[in-house]
Design a protein around this nucleic acid. Structure first.
Lengths: 251, 251
DNA sequence: CAGTGGTCTAGACCACACT
DNA sequence: GTGTGGTCTAGACCACTGC
């Protein structure tokens, strides 16, 4: 493992060894060499493969674990993270029932309103780094907590990667939708950006959520990314916040 | 630095050396031995003081830096974090102007509506771990971006720690309010939890923000904590989200 | 130049899981 | 017991800052 040559002009471009190793491990994750839930080689093995010390591999894995791409388990090994794990299920869902109300974790019910292939609008195309008119999958659904509708969601996905997505699969899969994306399409969502706004629902939206039109809703626009900051999902959610709230922690 | 004795019953209670060191450094921060913005001793010095290797101190500092309690600067040293730093100013403010509109960072204007000492309601007391009726400071203010009112905020602070807070100081201080809290009261906010909801403003709220009563607003209830998870501020904000949005990143 | 944090190594030992 | 990740050490050298 050699350092990159220092260029004469300007660029510092100094990349420590452990970051190069981190990149190599990332490649293995992107390429599918190690799939979500699988065990990756031990630190010693990776150190031997890359011809560096265990400590250097360790630092690379530390960073990847910090970004939730890998999961370390003492005595067992290091695993590729997955949305299917019990412990981190619904990691991206910040809506929580208000205190006092006893409610189960995670959406108890998913009702798929529609799921079809269509052409990307300019807006959707921009969010997904596609061109206007490219094929995209679109789904609309209602998520309920304890039988009460709480979220109305529109989801857009790149048509190429998500060819074959059906309403049946979306409603039938038992577990987080992002876990289904891993299983069926080999797409792992790694990070997401959200923009929140308070909005007034239109008639159709109010009807689907079973509320009056004057209840304000929390609009959550999310772009989810796979490895390498490639956007793979646009999601527009309307959250009921009269019985629930959106929880956030600032560090 | 000795490990805690293993108790016969149950408790694993194994605490690695670097966590003990981290606790000792934290004590120095809480006690005010090193104040916000100041330089703490070098890794080698701390290693000598605590009779451990540099690597152990390094790991302790790594964690504290990861929690934004310390800031490392290569070649210079390790500093106690502060809300006064240019780079991390308004770290807890997630409201951003929508794209397209050119607006400056941070509130351009602060208008203090009121600032007085009063007795804690049951609700406020619970949030701040006080007893109902204890003295608290309360302030109400409007924050404007580019001369447009965007945030109406109510702030409650423990009366004991914030004795002497005045409207003049709140409006006159040039910089983040949390930086002023550090300077004047020695209270550093380290972490915060927020609960978000979409709400309809009442008449007074709409008037103060200069909007019509049917514009839904984003309600942000924040509890901010100092070292050791001690709650030191309750803040209720109403954010305009027709020209701005609340930005969040999910990992 | 000296002093700081940042990287890298090699080796020892500990805690944990499985067999 | 064996193999995994987790901790701790000691020493070397690199990159950055400021004198």
């Amino acid at each position: 493992m050699s350092r990159p040559p220092a260029t004469a002009i300007d660029t510092p471009a100094f990349s420590p060894l452990y970051l190069q190793i981190k990149g190599l491990i990332l490649q293995g994750l992107q390429s599918g060499e190690w799939k979500p839930g699988e065990l990756i080689p031990s630190e010693m093995e990776l150190a031997a493969r890359f011809r560096v010390s265990q400590g250097t591999v360790r630092k690379a894995i530390d960073e990847l674990a910090g970004e939730n791409l890998l999961m370390r388990r003492q005595g067992k090994g290091t695993f590729v993270s997955t949305h299917a794990e019990r412990q981190v299920q619904y990691r991206f869902l910040r809506l929580r029932p208000d205190e006092g109300s006893e409610q189960a974790e995670g959406p108890a019910q998913r009702q798929i309103i529609e799921c079809r292939r269509l052409r990307a609008s300019a807006e959707v195309a921009r969010a997904l780094s596609l061109r206007t008119g490219d094929a995209v999958m679109h789904a609309r659904r209602v998520l309920s907590f304890a039988k009460t509708p709480a979220i109305l969601e529109d989801i857009w996905l790149p048509g190429q990667a998500f060819k074959g997505l059906t309403a049946e699969r979306m409603s039938g899969y038992n577990g987080p939708t992002y876990a289904m994306f891993e299983e069926d399409f080999g797409v792992r969502m790694v990070r997401a950006d959200e923009k929140l706004r308070a909005v007034t629902p239109n008639e159709e939206q109010a009807r689907l959520l079973g509320i009056s039109g004057c209840t304000p809703l929390l609009s959550v626009e999310r772009i989810a990314y796979t490895y390498n900051d490639v956007p793979m999902e646009l999601r527009r959610g309307l959250y009921r916040t009269d019985t629930h709230h959106y929880r956030n922690t600032l560090n």
